[in-house]
Design a protein around this nucleic acid. Structure first.
Length: 723
RNA sequence: GGGCGAUUAGCUCAGUUGGUUAGAGCGCUUCGUUUACACCGAAGAGGUCAAAGGUUCGAAUCCUUUAUCGCCCACCA
């Protein structure tokens, strides 16, 4: 009989147990014992190498580890594939900021090669930290297959994908309006824009006989069109195309009247001037009426020659000076100081977005093409495919199921509004576009052209381009590997609902074209972690719960089960320290249950004599069977919170509170003692199995005291039917 | 402007396809230190399931309307 301390010590146990798992090799599906033909696999959504893990990561790791451990115990050939994401723009901007802060140097001061070295060094350190933290959560990931979105294998996948889509005309280069970040000097995708509420003055300017309202007077130099609604009676005397000579900021201009139905008659004066090069709505109006485009602001945010005396000034500095001039010319009618509107900013650490028309690379989501093999996707053979149609089809057809289901509607809503995806970025950290130029010639291939004189496109790809390939690039694509054949499509894609669009939709897009398949069968979306008052966690509020700190205090198992215990999929999760503390008590309870049983028996293979069962014996065995069934059913149905609650309820309030108490008297009776011990042994073993996916460390540690041949992590799952 | 969701015990939340007296954790009250555990045990209080109406033998669950809150998308010069 071993002497066990009366309190479970998570700190001492966890690193020891994790090492034991690593040594066993069972994280790798190729090493699992027995005949395993059915695959189950999840690819880890790769954390960005921009820092450390937060509770959101912890939640993701816990949910996936539960599913993985459950399936591994259930006899599946189980693979959980780890990786990290280079997160192009996010990582680069972080390193740029750090370098500027300590050395006051920009990336241009360092040069592309030196700068990339520095980014890679930072990414490596960040990677190492993240991997260590991931291990501490107990994650049973197959480290032998670890991938990085920017390593050589993934780079080959990216170049191959680009080439295929380029040849099919799905990737094109074009002049279009893009979101330009003048500070970071790059384009940004629509999804990476963050709208911020701002109160700024709205200026009412005299434009000849009209009054126009604008929040951005510094863009107004080139305005030579004044637009109004055709039904607006205030302007009925003016006709479409009429030209008017008027005095403007830098002298007189010839303005043209344009009537357009998109104008809101209620707003301001009902008349506005347009700046087609720097505003998406204005751009549409200009296109519709075939108007001239003039660039006012350059890529650094400075005014061009058209601004006259203001040329070369940054728009921020120019604005007050322009206001002054407008004042002195008497062109300001009034100023509304409390105008509230929203401005676009780059969520990846940049600043205010200036829309610009630029030549960039795009993915065409509406171009029709023939699918190479329609079978796998059940796409109607009579129809031509588009990327948009395929994205919709994968969900509509039921090939991919989304949980919770209502997110399907959100998904469709997003697809319907989807525009061509701008994939080129003018940053350095990322996959460089596999296109080379020589004069007017363009060459796109997986490898660089052999002959001289070619220059590669300096731009890199949007980070989501490589993430979109993740489910199959990690399995060896474009090579036809065994892993790819066995493990694709993946079983479950588990991630936060906040990246349904960024990532989930793009994986569907890439996979349906490149593999003519789906990337995963099930999408499971979890919610955001909030504090106990439902506030978002943020540094400024000081309400952040650091998962590693919590683990030190309460143990990994406590954190794991607290994270999933009382919230259904897709809902935000309030996480209070009290809850984690409660689960530490639960781990300790389980520890002491085991201690009691171990102090009474060491034979965990004892057969139960079914003819000699007392009422409490029958009750606990039937409750055990019932709980096992319900836990299994709930895990299968992805209701992990339900499963955990049933396990908790059984362990504490059936096994501990009722049966263990009853067993004390039964064991006094020589007639019943042996059978009671057998029931205790059997119940403990099964309970440990049922709890293992949720609390792997404490259960494995107890298991190691039960004279078992194998680790608990590969013990056979009991679903209730076999009892 | 378009869409999605929430509203259940003091607090935080469960409640799968409508079916017996609506559940959990924490908190609270009273009692108890019985050799697995005080990170414990026993007993208990506490909810007209946001409001109104409807469908049904039966509604927290389905339908309609309203109120409050939250999120996503689009975006107005």
């Amino acid at each position: 009989m071993k002497e066990l301390s009366s309190t479970y010590n998570s700190k001492e146990t966890e690193s020891k147990i994790y090492q034991k798992w690593l040594d066993s090799g069972y994280f790798n599906p190729d090493n699992l014992p027995g005949e395993r033909t059915k695959p189950f696999n999840i690819v880890l959504p790769p954390p960005n190498v921009t820092g450390i893990l937060h509770t959101g990561h912890a939640l993701m790791l816990v949910i996936q580890d539960i599913l993985i451990r459950y399936h591994r115990m259930s006899g599946f050939k189980t693979l959980w594939l780890p990786g990290t994401d280079h997160a192009a723009i996010a990582t680069q901007s972080k390193v740029e900021a750090m370098i500027y802060k300590t050395e006051e140097k920009t990336r241009h001061d360092l040069g592309r090669e030196e700068f990339l070295k520095r980014v890679e060094q930072y990414a490596q350190e960040s990677h190492d930290t993240i991997i260590e933290q991931t291990k501490r959560l107990g994650s049973s990931l197959d480290w032998s297959r670890e991938a990085y979105t920017l390593d050589d294998a993934r780079n080959l996948a990216v170049r191959t994908a680009f080439k295929k889509m380029y040849d099919a005309g799905l990737i094109y280069r074009g002049n279009r309006m893009v979101n330009w970040d003048p500070k970071m000097q790059t384009t940004v995708s629509d999804d990476e824009i963050e709208w911020k509420e701002e109160i700024s003055p709205l200026y009412y300017l005299k434009y000849g006989p009209f009054t126009i309202a604008t929040a951005r007077p510094e863009t107004k130099f080139g305005d030579k069109y004044v637009v109004m609604h055709p039904d607006d009676k205030r302007y009925s005397e003016y006709t479409h195309g009429q030209q008017i000579e008027l005095e403007w900021i830098n002298g007189s201009v010839k303005a043209t009247v344009i009537k357009d139905e998109t104008i809101d008659m209620e707003f301001g004066t009902g008349a506005m001037t347009i700046t087609p090069r720097h505003d998406a709505t204005d751009n549409e109006i200009a296109q519709r009426h075939n108007l001239d485009y003039e660039q006012i602001i350059d890529q650094k945010g400075k005014l061009l020659a058209i601004a006259g005396e203001f040329a070369g000034l940054h728009i921020k500095k120019a604005r007050p000076l322009i206001i002054e001039k407008l004042q002195s010319k008497g062109l300001i009618e009034k100023i509304d100081e409390k105008y509230s509107h929203r401005i676009a900013t780059n969520s990846r650490g940049g600043e205010i977005i200036e829309p610009q028309i630029m030549r960039q690379w795009f993915i065409d989501v509406n171009k029709e093409f023939e699918l190479s093999s329609k079978q796998k996707l059940n796409f109607p053979t009579s129809e031509k495919a588009t990327l948009k149609k395929l994205m919709r089809h994968a969900i509509e057809s039921g090939l991919i199921k989304i949980y919770p289901e209502h997110f399907q509607k959100t998904y469709f809503h997003w697809i319907n509004n989807l525009k061509d995806w701008c994939i080129s970025r003018q940053i350095w950290y990322g996959h460089q576009i596999p296109v080379w130029y020589k004069g007017d010639e363009i060459y796109c291939d997986i490898e660089a052209p052999k002959d001289s004189g070619w220059e590669q496109d300096p731009d890199t790809l949007d980070t989501w381009f490589s993430s979109g390939l993740w489910t199959f690039s990690t399995l060896g694509w474009p090579d036809k590997t065994k892993d790819l054949e066995l493990f694709h499509p993946t079983s479950v894609l588990e991630t936060g609902y906040d990246i349904l669009f960024f990532w989930v939709a793009r994986m569907v897009l890439m996979t349906s074209y490149l593999l003519v398949d789906i990337p995963f069968k099930t999408v499971y979306l979890h919610g955001l972690i909030r504090d106990k008052d439902r506030q978002k966690m943020s540094k400024s509020k000081g309400n952040i719960i650091d998962p590693l700190g919590v683990i030190d205090t309460y143990g990994t198992d406590a954190l794991r089960i607290a994270l999933i215990f009382s919230t259904a999929a897709g809902n935000d999760i309030p996480l209070a320290e009290e809850k984690i503390k409660g689960m530490k008590h639960f781990a300790n309870k389980l520890w002491n249950i085991s201690r009691f049983i171990l102090s009474n028996t060491d034979n965990f293979e004892a057969e139960i004599d079914m003819t000699k069962l007392t009422d409490p014996d029958k009750e606990i065995l039937s409750k055990l069977k019932q709980s096992a069934g319900e836990i299994t059913e709930n895990i299968e149905g992805l209701r992990l919170n339900e499963a955990a609650q049933i396990a908790y309820q059984f362990t504490w309030h059936e096994l501990a509170d009722i049966y263990i108490e009853a067993s004390k008297t039964q064991m006094q009776n020589p007639e019943l003692a042996e059978n009671t011990k057998a029931v205790l042994a059997k119940t403990l073993k099964t309970t440990l199995k049922l709890l293992h996916p949720f609390m792997p460390f404490v259960t494995e540690e107890i298991w190691s005291n039960l004279n078992q041949k194998n680790l608990l992590m590969i013990a056979e799952w009991e679903n209730g039917d076999m009892m």
